[in-house]
Design a protein around this nucleic acid. Sequence first.
DNA 1: TTGATATATAAGTGAACACTTATATATTGA
DNA 2: TCAATATATAAGTGTTCACTTATATATCAA
Lengths: 107, 107
Amino acid sequence: MTSSHNREAVYRAIADPTRRAMLLMLSKKESSATELASPFDISQPAASQHLRVLRDAGLVTVERKGRERRYRLDPAPLHDVHNWLEHFERFWNAKLDALGNYLNRIA
Amino acid sequence: MTSSHNREAVYRAIADPTRRAMLLMLSKKESSATELASPFDISQPAASQHLRVLRDAGLVTVERKGRERRYRLDPAPLHDVHNWLEHFERFWNAKLDALGNYLNRIA
DNA sequence: TTGATATATAAGTGAACACTTATATATTGA
DNA sequence: TCAATATATAAGTGTTCACTTATATATCAA
C-alpha cells in the first residue's frame, strides 16, 4: 500500500470549485454522496462523477454503509500542493516585509 | 487597480505542469519568454499561450525590454491557494501527530 | 532597408472536461 | 416480493484545453 497517487490528479481535482467545496465539506464532517451533492445545483450523476475524481486523486476514501457511501477526507495528497507552494512563500513574505517597511517609514 | 484577479484562474493556471514549472523558474530569476520556453518540448506559440494563462491569472507581469519580454513572478494570487489549503492543515498535522505518537510508542 | 530575432495572435484539431438523461445495482422497509 | 432509496456507470453533447502551423508585429544588427 504505497499510497502512490498521481501527483497531477490532485491539481486537476482542486481546479474545480465544486470539488473544492466538497473537500471543504468533508473537512467538517464525513458525509454521504447525497449530502455532498445537496448544496449544488447539479444532477446526482454529476456529483457522483466529481466524487470519482476526488477518489482517483486519493483525496477521499469511501466506505459502504448500508445503501449509503460514507465519504471521508484524505488530505494527504494536498500536502504535495502545499509543498509546492512553499517554493513561493518567501516571495509573499518579502512583499509583506516590504509593505511593513513602507508602513514603518511613513508611520 | 484593485489587483482583482479571478480566483478561479489561479487554480486553473497551476493545474498544468508546464505552467507550474514556469512559475518555479520565475521564482529563481525573471526570464524572457524564450528562456521560459526553452526547457519544454513545445512550440513557441504553445509557450506563449501558457504565459498568457499565467498573465490572466495575475501570476506574472511582463515588461518589454528591447525585443524581449521580461517575465516576473507575482506570487500574490498563490496566496489564495495557500489560504484555502490551510483549511486542511490541521488534518495532516493530526496525521503526523498520530505517526509521531506511534513512533514514540515503538521507540 | 533588409534579414534575423523575439514574441504574440489566429485558426484549426483532437483530447479532456463538466454536464445531461437513461439505466444498472445494491439495500432497505413495507 | 416489491417499491423506494442511494449510488454508480454508460452514452451523448457542448465547451474548454493544449497543442499545432501560419502569420503578424516589433526590434535589432548588418
